[in-house]
Design a protein around this nucleic acid. Structure first.
Lengths: 242, 242
DNA sequence: TAGGTTTCTGACTATCAGGCGAAAACCTCG
DNA sequence: CGAGGTTTTCGCCTGATAGTCAGAAACCTA
């Protein structure tokens, strides 16, 4: 327990902050990757990120380093994903990397540096290090969270029609969902609300759609199984005091 | 991007692997903590763990270090929780810590070192560093996962009655659940199955209870909202090939 | 004005959570 | 040996939610 290491002899490791930045583009979910010019993995695609500076939190670091790629304001959501520590993950020497999941709303198209590009997550190019595996982790996390949180707000524009929101969900989940159900479920959970306005008609030839927005731009969770939920408030009635 | 750090000048940080080990003891959820003999935080209680050795994965490291406290075999589950990187989290100097969540089935009572003890999570003593906050994170994770996974298997004995399982869930969740519902829900999800045997009668004076076990000792997930689930297989009928 | 397209709304079904009470199975006490 | 108490088990009922479907509504173009 009280293993006493003098500060000098404690093993230390370079630490990277990485980001899996996802966005729905043209009805497909894409990940932001940059192409490595040098060995190792020259030509392969890697996650944006970099070394953790001495006086910075991992979260702050990943946000700042992303700012070198895109305008920070585009980030709708950023959460810690997992930490990879395999001693062999970098052939040059041991590094520890903490990956974050970042989401960008679909209506934005930030400019990217020349070495950086969007790649559909279901057709990734050759990836560097363990970054391909990290992207798969991020996908899994996103798809789970779409089901029981409101992360959708970070993938969708501030205002949208149900059809547009459906496209975002279909792209992110990878399978079809019906617009009717999506609308009813999200409305019932209280994460969606109509703005009262209508979509600009005339672009599709059909009935103009109502515009919606997410109620809260904060992450909130909807507990799935009521069995394991505290009884909160019971339906009244019952014991009519006899 | 290609920020070029020579290997020597890359900042490096001591990395700790910590574990929040939880167990239901005497109908209350407890966390395993050890009392620090030295400054900083002398006398305060800390999470077990220690420095990450040069050639070890974080997961392997935390498992090995726990083995110094308790027999490893008692660990029913171990998963990565989160990584803390606040530069001020250790007054002696910057360290990065990755926390794991470990679970021990309720029927075991492993011997602990003299400085180590179980503490009810709803009445923790003074904790060192950010460890109190990490324990709260672990609690949140456990309680969420109890609802949509089968992690319960890692907290319960290999065979148990519904009443016993209910006690474990009540303790871990912190609020009451009914045995009837717990049984039906878990059976319906297919994570629970009867062993065919009965509990040894005579210890409680009532009807002997049937014994159950968890179907899989592996972590499995039950997707909560069917809306966002792929249509898998539809209920037959309908198009009776005309 | 007619036809096509898209969205919106309501009805219907199936499944699941949750509660309640009766019946079953065991014990202990008289 | 029977009565009463205790605990578990099982079935029934209610309410909420997921999912599908069809028809009405609203817009455009020809």
């Amino acid at each position: 327990m009280g293993s006493v290491w003098s500060s000098a002899e404690r093993p230390a490791y370079p630490h990277q902050a990485l980001a899996v930045v996802l966005q729905v583009r043209d009805r497909r979910l894409h990940a932001m990757l940059w192409q490595r010019p040098n060995e190792p993995f020259a030509g392969a695609w890697a996650l944006p990120g970099g070394p953790l500076p001495a006086e910075e939190t991992l979260g702050a670091s990943v946000a700042r380093q992303l700012a070198a790629k895109v305008e920070v304001e585009v980030l709708g959501h950023l959460e810690q994903l997992e930490t990879r520590s395999d001693p062999g993950r970098d052939p040059r020497g041991r590094t520890v990397a903490t990956a974050y999941l970042g989401l960008i709303p679909s209506h934005l198209d930030p400019a990217l540096p020349g070495d950086t590009a969007w790649h559909p997550v279901d057709a990734l190019p050759a990836t560097a290090f363990d970054h391909g595996s990290i992207v798969r982790s991020a996908l899994h996390r996103l798809r789970s969270k779409l089901s029981y949180t409101n992360v959708g707000f970070a993938l969708a524009p501030p205002e949208f029609t149900v059809a547009e929101l459906r496209e975002v969900y279909v792209a992110a989940l990878g399978y079809d969902v019906t617009a009717t159900n999506l609308q009813r479920v999200l409305l019932r959970r209280g994460v969606l609300e109509p703005t009262g306005e209508q979509s600009p008609p005339g672009r599709s030839g059909g009935r103009p759609a109502a515009l919606y927005r997410f109620v809260t731009p904060e992450l909130s969770v909807t507990d799935p199984f009521a069995v394991f939920r505290p009884p909160s408030q019971k339906p009244g009635g019952g014991d009519d005091g006899g």
